[in-house]
Amino acid sequence: MTGLSRRVGDVPVLECLPAGAPARGLVIWIPPLGGDKERYTDRLEELARRGFLAVGIDPRRHGERADRPADALFDQVMTSFRTTMWPILGGTVLDAAEVIDAELAIHGLGGPVLAGGVSMGGDIAVALAGIDPRVSRVAAVAATPDWTRPGMTRIGRPDDVIDQGRATTGGQWLRDHLEPLTHTDRYRRDLAIRLDVGAADTHVPGEAAHRFATMLSRGPRRPSIDVIDHPGSDHRQMCHDPQVLTAALSWLVGPSRSGRTAATRE
């Protein structure tokens, strides 16, 4: 296994390559708000040991692309959520599709392409699958398909509902075109999705994940989608629980599943 930092266009990426054999496929893993491509280096290395080309990216305004410290960006997002977050989400979705183009070409891979992430990174991974049919499996932890996050509260303060403010014109355009919950038709294909949500998470409420699964369980061409509830877990616990992350990653690179469309509970 070898690691390499490079840039794909404007996007800094961290590649972990399997040693001694061609990669079985590509996994793109996206960090949460305030994170960077190095945050999950150990997990990328683990995926490489399992035979995958594992790629972490810096979302817009993160890591090498940061225009301010991570804690200052976090505060800005919490005080002007739609103005700040929606351009980060939508822009990084588009960036991730370009990274997939480049990584498959550079390494001569045909697939499969798998995607995942935590919190904001999971939001991006789910939206990526909606615009890029090469993505066949998605694992998202503490994430949502609903960019409006109804009832979102501050982390650790479940009674403090955030005033999300108004979106910019560009941010609204990105949400209108990329948000998964309003484009469920894009997910009606051979696709498997796992959404791990905290039953006590009021920052990224799990209700939208269940609603998404219910919508996709109706009608033709149903994808496989599992929503895994974690009783008693809030947002911080979900984002930092190594067992949750291990289970999600094991599922992501494990055997294919088919025929499951209803939400499940753990």
Rank of each mutant, 00 (worst) to 15 (best):
residue 220 P to F: 02
residue 11 V to M: 09
residue 27 V to K: 07
residue 214 T to Y: 08
residue 241 D to K: 06
residue 212 F to V: 07
residue 163 D to M: 01
residue 244 V to S: 00
residue 86 W to S: 01
residue 178 L to S: 03
residue 213 A to T: 06
residue 138 V to G: 03
residue 263 A to H: 11
residue 70 A to D: 15
residue 216 L to M: 11
residue 161 V to G: 02
residue 180 P to H: 09
residue 172 Q to N: 04
residue 42 D to W: 10
residue 226 D to H: 14
residue 51 G to H: 05
residue 210 H to T: 03
residue 18 P to C: 10
residue 242 P to H: 08
residue 214 T to F: 09
residue 241 D to W: 06
residue 52 F to E: 01
residue 131 I to H: 02
residue 121 G to A: 04
residue 53 L to G: 05
residue 52 F to S: 03
residue 81 F to W: 13
residue 7 R to H: 15
residue 243 Q to P: 00
residue 220 P to S: 11
residue 190 D to A: 13
residue 116 G to A: 05
residue 149 R to P: 00
residue 122 G to F: 10
residue 52 F to I: 01
residue 230 H to V: 14
residue 6 R to K: 12
residue 265 R to G: 09
residue 186 R to W: 05
residue 182 T to R: 13
residue 78 M to G: 00
residue 172 Q to R: 14
residue 44 L to Y: 09
residue 195 L to Q: 08
residue 35 G to R: 01
residue 169 T to H: 10
residue 248 A to M: 09
residue 227 V to D: 06
residue 54 A to I: 06
residue 38 E to G: 08
residue 173 W to R: 14
residue 238 M to C: 08
residue 85 M to L: 11
residue 177 H to I: 00
residue 249 L to A: 04
residue 134 R to Q: 06
residue 39 R to K: 07
residue 171 G to Q: 04
residue 8 V to R: 01
residue 99 V to S: 07
residue 103 E to N: 00
residue 27 V to P: 07
residue 57 I to S: 04
residue 148 T to M: 10
residue 101 D to L: 04
residue 46 E to I: 01
residue 235 H to C: 10
residue 1 M to D: 05
residue 250 S to H: 09
residue 46 E to Y: 11
residue 23 A to H: 13
residue 107 H to N: 14
residue 175 R to A: 15
residue 164 Q to W: 04
residue 80 S to W: 00
residue 69 P to T: 13
residue 71 D to W: 10
residue 129 A to I: 08
residue 16 C to H: 15
residue 29 W to Q: 00
residue 125 A to W: 03
residue 180 P to N: 08
residue 189 R to W: 07
residue 50 R to W: 06
residue 205 P to Y: 02
residue 169 T to D: 14
residue 171 G to S: 03
residue 177 H to L: 05
residue 250 S to E: 15
residue 106 I to W: 15
residue 106 I to Q: 14
residue 262 A to T: 11
residue 165 G to Y: 13
residue 52 F to W: 15
residue 198 G to K: 02
residue 77 V to Q: 00
residue 121 G to I: 02
residue 258 S to N: 10
residue 37 K to I: 10
residue 177 H to C: 03
residue 55 V to E: 08
residue 72 A to Q: 15
residue 158 P to W: 05
residue 145 P to N: 10
residue 171 G to E: 04
residue 239 C to R: 12
residue 37 K to H: 05
residue 248 A to V: 09
residue 170 G to A: 12
residue 241 D to N: 15
residue 85 M to V: 02
residue 146 D to I: 06
residue 131 I to K: 00
residue 252 L to N: 03
residue 148 T to S: 13
residue 4 L to H: 13
residue 261 T to Q: 04
residue 249 L to M: 12
residue 206 G to K: 01
residue 237 Q to H: 05
residue 34 G to F: 11
residue 34 G to M: 11
residue 262 A to E: 13
residue 161 V to N: 03
residue 62 H to C: 11
residue 233 S to A: 15
